[in-house]
Design a protein around this nucleic acid. Structure first.
Lengths: 138, 138
DNA sequence: CACTTGCACTTGCAAATTGCAAGCGCGAGG
DNA sequence: CCTCGCGCTTGCAATTTGCAAGTGCAAGTG
């Protein structure tokens, strides 16, 4: 986003910050990982992103290797998907969800989801991640 | 950071995005959680934050309840610490570290740390978190 | 085939945020 | 007192953001 973010390698948190340290990116990843969003118009709908920002974030995520943009042969329109690198963020996203569940007094995380998350986070993560691999959608 | 971030409650990822969805905040939290940074001048040193940005991020983290600013009676200068809410982010930070370890080709995460992280992440998280509770520093 | 529609962006511009450099206040040390 | 270091604050230029409107294109309609 600013000059030489390329240099933000090395330190793991700095690397993660460069890759996903932006509220729109987190929201887009959420939509891809947990809401089955695949099309441009599906992202950050509730939050109301400006379309130019959305476009630039998608580009950054793509060039960071977190998402993959392909064209749907059925209608010529783009389809966005998480790459393996992007899918690997699921455990981190779940950790954030667990945190928000605990600390956001207005949280909307369903109790059942929170329970699964607490009892067997790895299992839940694997289930979500495998559900995201090619062709297992919808 | 922009208008009505107060409304970013409810959805857990959106909440987390509002709280820590910013590269400087992640870096500051890293310094507090993993590098024993406590003073204004200790934060994001390698990354070179502008001091005005640092000041505003510290304020935001404080008003979000993630950190706590107190005055050191010894010398009248501020000391920053993670609150319980802030400490609870450690597992999420570790998940990000694990991810960066895997995907950053230039990662500087020590192998031994990565091994602990893989073998017993919860244990590592607990160790770090308990090391951060009042008075256990230095 | 011309015409409209829906989707995926792109563009222009004003407003907000960022980064940089310099300045300020204060407690400790000399 | 005077100076120094630390923890910010301020001013200002450069970017980035958000909003609104526009463009290109494929598919549907008559």
């Amino acid at each position: 986003m600013t000059r030489k973010l390329d240099d933000w390698h090395g330190c793991p948190i700095r690397y993660a910050a460069a890759m996903i340290g932006d509220r729109w990116k987190l929201v887009i990843l959420r939509d891809l990982a947990l809401k089955e969003a695949r099309r441009y118009g599906d992202f950050a709908v509730e939050e109301g992103v400006a379309t130019n920002i959305l476009a630039s974030r998608l580009l950054e995520l793509e060039s960071g290797g977190l998402i993959d943009r392909t064209i749907d042969p059925e209608n010529g329109r783009p389809i966005y998907r998480l790459t393996e690198k992007g899918r690997d963020l699921v455990p981190a996203l779940l950790a954030l969800i667990a945190w928000s569940y605990k600390w956001d007094p207005k949280t909307e995380v369903p109790k059942s989801f929170a329970r699964d998350l607490r009892r067997a986070p790895d299992k839940l993560a694997r289930r979500i991640m495998s559900g995201l691999v090619e062709g297992t959608s919808a």
